[in-house]
C-alpha cells in the first residue's frame, strides 16, 4: 500500500519557522511508523532527525505525536493509523530539531520527586535483600512500568500551560516509591508533590492515561496520591 507521511521539520540553524514535508512511501500495513521514518532517513532525506534506541517499546526514546496523539513510533503500526500519517514532535517541550525535543524540563521535574529507593535502615540480619509480600509488591506494580517516554506529561494541558508542573510521569514515579513498603522517604516525597506545582495542578483531564504506551492507569495513581495526602495511608 502507498502511505503519505507528513513530517514536521525544523532545523534551528537554517529555518526561521517549522514546516511540513510530505513523503509518499510504499509500506506494508504491519510496518511501524518508526520503519517509515527510518526509510525516509535512509533513502529520501538523511537530514531527518528523530530519537530511537531499542525500537521495541522499552526505552521510550521515540515518543512523538502521530496523527495528533502521543504514541511510540516503534509500537504503532500503519494499520493502526491509516495511510495518511502526520508525525510531529511532542507538545510542551522546545523542539531541538525535527522530531527531537529538549527533554531537560521533563527530567528536571522527574528529579524533583527523588526517583530512587531510599532506605537508611541497616540490612536484615542475614545481610540479604529487604523482602516484601506479593501484595505489597502489587500495590505499586503498575507504576513500575514507566519508561520515561514523556508521552503522558506532554499530553497534559497543565504541562502545556507551564513546564513548572511536575507532570504525570514525575507523579507516577513518586507513586512507585511512596507506596513501596521498603522505602522510607514517603513523607519527604509527599511534601514535595504537595507543592503548588505538584498534585494540585492535575485537573484529571485523563490525557495521560490515554497516552501512556505502557497502559499505566496514571490518573488513578495520581488520585491515590491525592487521597494519601488526606488520609496519610501509603500502604
Amino acid at each position: 500500500m502507498q502511505v503519505t507521511l507528513k513530517v514536521f521539520r525544523y532545523n534551528p540553524e537554517v529555518d526561521k519557522r517549522f514546516r511540513y514535508e510530505t513523503y509518499t512511501i510504499e509500506a506494508e500495513e504491519t510496518d511501524r511508523i518508526l520503519d517509515l521514518l527510518e526509510y525516509v532517513k535512509g533513502y529520501k532525506d538523511g537530514t531527518l532527525s528523530f530519537r530511537r534506541s531499542c525500537a521495541h517499546g522499552v526505552c521510550g526514546s521515540d515518543a512523538m505525536r502521530i496523527n495528533g496523539r502521543n504514541m511510540l513510533a516503534c509500537k504503532t503500526l500503519v494499520r493502526d493509523v491509516g495511510d495518511r500519517i502526520t508525525v510531529e514532535p511532542l507538545l510542551g517541550l522546545k523542539v531541538a530539531k525535527d522530531l527531537i525535543v529538549d527533554m531537560e524540563p521533563f527530567f528536571d521535574n522527574y528529579k524533583k520527586v527523588l526517583p530512587y529507593f531510599i532506605n537508611e535502615s541497616p540490612l536484615p540480619e542475614n545481610g540479604r535483600e529487604r523482602l516484601q509480600s506479593p501484595e505489597q509488591r502489587a500495590r505499586f506494580d503498575e507504576t513500575t512500568k514507566c519508561i520515561l517516554c514523556a508521552a503522558c506529561t506532554t499530553s497534559c494541558p497543565s504541562f502545556w500551560a507551564s513546564d513548572q508542573y511536575y507532570g504525570p510521569a514525575a507523579l507516577v514515579t513518586a507513586h512507585r516509591f511512596i507506596f513501596d513498603s521498603r522505602d522510607e522517604a514517603a513523607s519527604e516525597r509527599m511534601h514535595i508533590i504537595a507543592e503548588t506545582d505538584g498534585l494540585a495542578r492535575c485537573h484529571t483531564a485523563y490525557n495521560c492515561t490515554l497516552a501512556c504506551p505502557r497502559e499505566i492507569p496514571i490518573t488513578k495513581a495520581i488520585g491515590e496520591l491525592k487521597l494519601a495526602t488526606i488520609t496519610g495511608k501509603v500502604e
Binding site: M190, H191, A194, E195, G232, V234
Partner: peptide, 12 residues
C-alpha cells in the same frame, strides 16, 4: 503517615 508528615499543606 501522621498529619504533619503527609504534605497536607494549604494547596492540598
Amino acid at each position: 503517615l501522621p498529619l504533619t508528615k503527609r504534605g497536607l499543606n494549604f494547596e492540598m
